[in-house]
């Protein structure tokens, strides 16, 4: 680990722009935040705000061609992205990437994109509206193993820059930086600790996780809760760790020969048809079962054991986007009160 002092953030941005396509979270007129490509000319200030869509689409694309069939054999269609940097990505989303890195470890499409990416994390020093990252060990400070470079805001628009690995060190090579004293790290810890204290009481969530894992949530509770699941796919689309996909074939006969493309696309385990077989047998025909599985996947001990952490990174996106008012806070509260 190397620690530096950074006086001017734009120097780092310009330096990275010379080697990478640079993406950064930008806020539009409506205060909506999204990942946008930056250029040398268009270079917006770095903000510590959660974009509505997480960064998972950068690696696990929403729609992706897997292969083509030319009538004789099947050919892989691997993506070949130019090197890119996600500049200023927050800890919850970084934790999710690290989670998906593990899940998609052997997926060639995911890895083809992931290998090209430099992750520059940004510490949160203020809690966000729906977030509860400290509860699930996903923030507010960037976990070292999840980013190549970490940025931490200091006073007077100054920054602490931490390079956590060789990839980070390589990326900042040639940039004139002052190494700085380790006590800045202590100060960072203090700031982050203070930020953690500012998060609202999370006992609803921790208690609900316990109830969930102690088998205290009844089937009838899930059934009643699931009346409010409209199967919209909003939660699974925005959830940074959700990774289910479907596949389909697209036949292109426009020219004299026929080419068939096979595509994968984001799916949602909350759709009734997700597990339905051609025989109409459906192991998860009941909405209650599907909703239960979703939350079990995020908070169940059996999954914790596999990934060494919860499937939820505490970003709170599902709470905001669920039309049925059964996002994470609402569900956890109801588990505590009624289950």
């Amino acid at each position: 680990m190397e620690i530096y002092h950074l006086d001017d953030l734009s120097l780092l941005q310009q330096h990275l722009l010379a080697q990478y396509q640079l993406y950064q979270v930008v806020k539009n007129d409506d205060k909506q935040c999204s990942w946008q490509q930056q250029t040398k000319e268009r270079n917006e200030p770095l903000i510590a705000e959660l974009p509505q869509s997480s960064a998972k689409d950068f690696f696990f694309a929403e729609h992706e061609n897997l292969l083509i069939f030319n009538g004789e054999y099947f050919q892989e269609t691997l993506p070949t992205p130019a090197p890119f940097v996600l500049f200023g990505i927050l800890s919850c989303d970084l934790t999710a990437i690290s989670y998906q890195d593990q899940f998609f470890k052997d997926d060639p499409y995911y890895q083809a994109r992931r290998q090209q990416c430099l992750l520059v994390g940004l510490d949160c020093i203020k809690p966000c509206q729906q977030g509860f990252c400290p509860t699930v060990d996903a923030g507010p400070g960037v976990r070292e193993h999840t980013a190549d470079i970490i940025l931490h805001p200091l006073e007077n628009h100054q920054w602490l820059l931490i390079s956590t690995n060789d990839k980070g060190t390589e990326a900042i090579k040639g940039l004139s930086l002052k190494t700085c004293h380790w006590h800045f790290l202590t100060q960072r810890d203090l700031t982050l600790h203070q930020c953690e204290q500012e998060f609202t009481d999370d006992s609803d969530i921790t208690q609900a996780i316990d109830k969930l894992n102690n088998g205290e949530v009844s089937d009838s509770f899930w059934q009643q809760l699931a009346v409010q699941c409209l199967g919209c796919s909003g939660c699974t689309t925005l959830c940074p760790t959700c990774s289910c996909y479907g596949t389909r074939s697209i036949t292109d006969e426009s020219e004299d020969k026929k080419v068939i493309t096979q595509q994968r696309f984001w799916d949602s385990c909350l759709y009734e048809g997700f597990q339905r077989e051609a025989s109409f047998h459906n192991p998860s025909a009941e909405a209650g079962k599907r909703v239960q599985r979703f939350w079990q996947h995020k908070f169940g001990n059996e999954f914790f054991a596999e990934f060494n952490r919860h499937g939820c990174v505490g970003c709170g996106r599902c709470e905001q986007t669920c039309p049925g008012v059964i996002g994470v806070h609402s569900v956890m509260k109801r588990i505590n009160n009624n289950a």
Partner: peptide
């Protein structure tokens, strides 16, 4: 979804 839309406030249906 548009996060700050007066009606849908960051939600969409399927």
């Amino acid at each position: 979804p548009q996060q700050n839309h007066p009606i849908s406030q960051g939600k969409l249906c399927d």
